[in-house]
Design a protein around this nucleic acid. Sequence first.
DNA 1: TAAAATGTTTATTTAA
DNA 2: TTAAATAAACATTTTA
Length: 813
Amino acid sequence: MRTSPRRPLILKRRKLSLPVEDAPASHHSAGRDEPDGRCKTVPSGRQPSDTDASAQKFPAGIKIVNHPTMPNTQLVLIPKHANIQSIIAALTAKGKECGSSGPNKFILISGGDGTPRPVCSQGEHGQTNLDPDIGACVTKAVDEGKKSVSQDPEDVGMEDDTPLQTVKRLVPRLIVEGERENDEGGAVNCALDESLTNIQWLGKMSSDGLGSCNVKQELEDKENQAPEPEGSRREESFSVLPCSSSVSWQDSISERPPYSYMAMIQFAINSTDRKRMTLKEIYTWIEDHFPYFKHIAKPGWKNSIRHNLSLHDMFVRETSANGKISFWTIHPDANRCLTLDQVFKSLDPGSPMQVQPCEAQQKRLLPELQKSVPGGNGMKSEVPGGSGLTERKMKLLLPRVSSYLVPVQFLLNQPFLQQPPGKTPLSPAPVCSASTADWTKSNERVQITSKANLHVEEPSPFLPMPSVKEDTIAVKEEAASSPVKKEEEEAVHFSSSYTNLKSPTRKLPDMQASMLDEGPSPFLPLLPVKEEDPFEVKNDCRFTILKENVPLTSWKAEKTFYAAKSQARKIPDMQVIRRRESGSRRKQRLVLPCAEEPLLVFPEGNSSDSGLVSDFSFLQESQPLAHPTEQSCTQDSCSFKTPIKDKLIKMPASSTPCKPIGTAPPAGGSEPCRVTPLNKEGGLLDFSPVRFPRGTTLTPFKDSLELLGFSSPPFNDIPLFESPRQLLNNKSPDMTSGPFTSSPTFEPHSAKRCSKELQIGSCTNRSLTEGLVLDTMNDSLSKILLDISFTGLEDDDFEVDNVSWSQLIPELR
DNA sequence: TAAAATGTTTATTTAA
DNA sequence: TTAAATAAACATTTTA
């Protein structure tokens, strides 16, 4: 799939594809997609039988049958003599044959036929080599896992090494039904084990190795690449590289940072003590920290920086006392104090930072996080597994809506999760508070530079307003102008309204509800646009807005309030400069005299907590919100373009166009405005199951596999069982959590949430769903989960302790 | 004064 | 449909 060079990784969904593209036909890689989407080749030259979908036979005696109970799931019955190639091919062929609508989970079950298994079945079909591409990918992946494996696919351990040794060297052992470890001998010389292990390894490879392959390809293509396609390829490589990839964009000028411009700007600005930067400094900072932009990126990236600075309201331009230097700051209400240090952690103090979003920190600190939430508020049970958290964690860094619009997420985690180990805590809250304090109190002699006429020029977040940007005013300190009493009054009026708006108990103004109910305001579209007197126009607009209590969100209103207040107080010192009618789109500025620092009328403790206080208090308030609108207003404190849209989504009975809410409203509508500090993208607190299309549950484990490096043995502690009964009887915590607990930071509770099936299996019946799902979504072997479910054993009276697999799986007979 | 830098806005493309 | 990236036009300011 083509990936965009524009999109940062963190915004992308990982699309994992089987890295056997263009594989030679001689290899045993899975058949590639044919135009009709069906499997082209099958190992050993056999085509999968398409006569019986329920018991399809594949080479090496592999059978794939439909799972008796689980939809989109098939049982892969693997004879002991099956080799890895056969299994992979069969699975792939099956997946491709079924297409995107077919089953996406495969339960891998060994045959258990009792026949002496060959010592090594790798060469059974005369095929011992992996696809070179796969091998290369695997090698890369293994290399990344600090494994010393030659790139020669033949050296991946398929021949020189005993298969099992190779497997065991490469990947952790996998639990396999019907297989058991030889207690005495330790290692089971089992081709199936190898195969399954290799399947897992393939699944790993599909995510890691592919990236490596892409990196490899990237390196090969880089020489001849123009910047644009180069970025594309890099992007692609990023899309599959694991967090722990050794290919760090920080070490490579060719790697585009996985951050949006907005995020990088935040990084830059927050890297300074004063939380402000000139444009040039931002350029420099980005170039210094992301060499890509210095060496590779097209010059247009600076344009994008400027574009982002102007576009996002969170970026506020201030001017120096003399008005000659423009500083870009982040509005305190929007500033999460996000820094590069917070999104990275140094794995090795002596080594450069590696691409490692602090997901591990987050996971490790999750228990603390949960403890920090009184009562848990249901969080504990909803703490996702590692991968889900990973994605959500990543979203914390997203430049999208969630990243800065709803600082709750960030604040929730920041004190616990954002601190790089071994580093001096950034103390985000104090920093932010300080920043906010500076912003709201001292203001550092910095003149507030307002953006375009907020009320008039910028459409109301709730109302489609006509653009009157061409006839707005700029207020400057340099010159004086005759005061306008009317304006003063209106300004005062506005300040009062604004104060109310910002009051701790503020709630949505009545007008808001009416607007939401009635649609666009009848006033705003009628705003007069008088060429002759833009100032008058502006006043009218403002007054109209005030009268209607348009819920201007805090800081946007704040800016306006600066203007209004200043106008009220310093009219003589100001000059109303009518914007020239040349059609200029330049952002209007409001430069206040240094001597007239705006005095904020924010209510105590509410105006400038940078979202920290309020946000964290939200976490501490575990009880359900009694007044959702209040929370809404809390969010109102961040009035940004996108967040406003977001808020609209949550607005009750909103008649304004809004994006449909992803989750169904609560039954009964008892909570019309179910305000959550999280965003629609499912922030940290949104632990709802992540689902694939077609209802497939994307288990956190899916991604936890990604997190599990090659060096981590997620399955080491999982016993092997000879029979289903044994398997069920051994449903010990270790077994239940099994691979999930392999991560030292894994939240035990999340194991139960690793998949819907698992929940069902552990709660409603005695089936197990665990481990390995071979996800063939999008024709890819992305993840493997050993999924064991035997509804026939639900009955406690099922006393066939020695029941064999074949008794449960007729096809095994 | 021209060029460069900076700032604003709109439009388009792309991926999710 | 939306967010982000990108390009571009244009305006304004700064600098050489």
